[in-house]
């Protein structure tokens, strides 16, 4: 496989997705969970830009990427707000301790 910028981007997407999901599977800290979600979103943003590059629609995908960043910032903010509220009400950020709902 030759090392073209495109391939680097693709590898970057795959790597970020893998890292993000690996993190979500292993971390128990809510703050880290939100960070992992952000990593996943960054993978998606990179993916969109790469796709725009491949198909020659860079103009469209760039504006999409910006929209995605905005949208996911909102999600991140809400996630953080939840995390804070959980810390206050439950007194922990460990997701494994947040498992009262089961069965």
């Amino acid at each position: 496989m030759n090392i073209s910028p495109l391939n680097i981007c693709l590898l970057g997407v795959i790597g970020l997705v893998a890292a993000g999901f690996y993190g979500l599977l292993t971390t128990r800290n809510l703050i880290k969970v939100v960070i992992m979600l952000q990593i996943l979103v960054k993978a998606a943003v990179l993916g969109l830009i790469t796709a725009g590059n491949i198909s020659g629609q860079l103009y469209v995908t760039q504006s999409m990427a910006i929209t995605v960043i905005v949208a996911d910032t909102i999600v991140a903010v809400i996630g953080m707000a939840f995390a804070i509220q959980i810390r206050r009400q439950v007194g922990t950020l460990d997701t494994n301790e947040l498992s009262s709902l089961r069965g």
Binding site: L40, A43, A44, T61
Partner: peptide, 21 residues
């Protein structure tokens, strides 16, 4: 939130693939 957000990034990746193709 976490599960849903993880799902929606997968959708974005899918959109990327469709645009690329």
């Amino acid at each position: 939130l976490v599960q849903s957000a993880a799902g929606s990034t997968l959708v974005l990746l899918a959109i990327g693939l469709v645009v690329a193709e």
